[in-house]
Design a protein around this nucleic acid. Sequence first.
DNA 1: TTGAAAGCGCTAACAC
DNA 2: GTGTTAGCGCTTTCAA
Lengths: 336, 336
Amino acid sequence: MFEPVTIKDIAKALGLSTSTVSRALRDTYEISSATKKLVTDYAKQIGYKPNPIALSLKERRSKSIGVVVSEVANSYFSQAIDGIESIAYDKGYHVIISQTHESYEREVINVNHLASRGVDGLLVSLSSQTSDISHLKSLHEKGLPIVFFDRVADEIVTDKVIADNEKGAYNATSHLIASGYKKIAHLTSSSHLSISIERLSGYKKALSDHNIELNEAYIKYCPHGGMIYEETETAIKELLALKDKPDAIFVAGDRLSTGCLSVFKNLSVKVPDDMAIAGFSNSDVLDLFNPSLTSVRQPAYEIGQQATEMLLRLIEAKYPVEEFEKKVLDTNLFIR
Amino acid sequence: MFEPVTIKDIAKALGLSTSTVSRALRDTYEISSATKKLVTDYAKQIGYKPNPIALSLKERRSKSIGVVVSEVANSYFSQAIDGIESIAYDKGYHVIISQTHESYEREVINVNHLASRGVDGLLVSLSSQTSDISHLKSLHEKGLPIVFFDRVADEIVTDKVIADNEKGAYNATSHLIASGYKKIAHLTSSSHLSISIERLSGYKKALSDHNIELNEAYIKYCPHGGMIYEETETAIKELLALKDKPDAIFVAGDRLSTGCLSVFKNLSVKVPDDMAIAGFSNSDVLDLFNPSLTSVRQPAYEIGQQATEMLLRLIEAKYPVEEFEKKVLDTNLFIR
DNA sequence: TTGAAAGCGCTAACAC
DNA sequence: GTGTTAGCGCTTTCAA
């Protein structure tokens, strides 16, 4: 039904060969300016658009990059995507976004789809369910450039961009301590995610630096990262049921932070009187929240930009790149 | 660098022709089961994946659909996208998302890119800056299936899916009236958007049904739909500066609603004492807001699903479709 | 039952 | 300065 104009149509109409038309359109030096003008004018007139699919097939690159995130509805990721697009469009690359919804299975499907669909490279933030990364490893070994951001896989040797999760967590926890809280719980997502590990480590470090003993019962995991309300609710309820109930909580994720506030609201737990809270979040409506949330904000836009720059470097490298880097960007603590 | 396995590799390794391999893989009846097994086993072993780009080129369809929205960070759109994906994946279609950031120019670029990139159809919600829709019209006339959702263009004769914006606006405005407010302002985005027109109409109808005279000075437009804080702020300030200041405001958009709350907060306008507010929003953290927001929620997920079903019907139609439909789904009023 | 060859839209050697 | 041709990966007549 949908029949775009091809180079052949132009050639036929103008009594030229396809190669001449092709060269004229690409402004090659060997074509007479008269022909060039003829061709370009006619092309514009009938609305010719080169077929990128044919081009991809020929050149074995698509000038597009794939992005794998858990959810675009997450402020952190939507900001990162804006950063990614800002660089990619500038360099003539198109961005294809795919969501895993924190599902390992979906991640495998999406990654393979993107790869076989001919993206030139991949920007990946792992789903919370992912621990086996062989789907990425095999593509990477075949030479597909991959850059990780946020939730990275150390197993794969490539460029990575993350926020300073440990320091962010350290600062947030320290802030709670400085505010007088001593029994600080930690609510985090899947235990094998790099961000969980880093944030947990910052939390522990803050406690130990302030001579507060770590209570393992205070650490709760929500493998779905706040996607399932009941999971968050259960974790919170367990914390509240402890004989030595915590008086504050440091939350390690965006969705978890808001989920946590919802649970407290529904359970009529007063924040911060009954329970103080600080958490990672990139939401831009936090100022409207009440009770308010002290938040650790990541430079999501910049992370997206840097990751994209790194990926394009890998894609456009003439020779296989051997030197990789892990960029760590500072977080910001917003005390509310 | 990235060298996927091709049908040719299999053919060479197995001493067969490419066509035999192709047919074996596609399980054609003419191939002996011995050969089929040989081929499929080997294909699996070396991890053969058909190249969809070559397929697209040949079959002139890509089994992918393009989605054009203003922003994925908007709850309404991210929910709609989830609905779109739920149907599309089921039917074997991949979804390519693109953002206009409410820019007409970006919309034109994205639409053309998606079309030339070979999507089989387009799901479009217009940017707030778009009034000229010739970029869509010309593609549509060439036979590219397009379905509009949310912000539709009546000029183009095709399927459309929207929420009952007029009724939603009517209910929200009526609620404010029932709560005792009489001087109700209306903050909306670009005046030419279908949703603006419909919501304005609901607002007017509610006023007239309750014998409240319309005050044109009470209607304020923010062409960027809340993307620019200053724009919203200016509009609000103008309302507040009126001699006959409004006592309530009905807001016609997601970002505008939260933007409005932010402005009031920053101007120390007490909600709802100084100014009551009701607005369209699909955010799922509204319950955490204080002051709280009475909201009109659209069935975004369902809208996405329905639009996708309609688009796939158009795409897969054997004969040109002549009958089009405009589906209107109910909104929900959440009184807070 | 299998192979050879053409063609999808485009570019790039290689002619002329 | 322009035309001819091959080939990117795949499917599909047409032959064998």
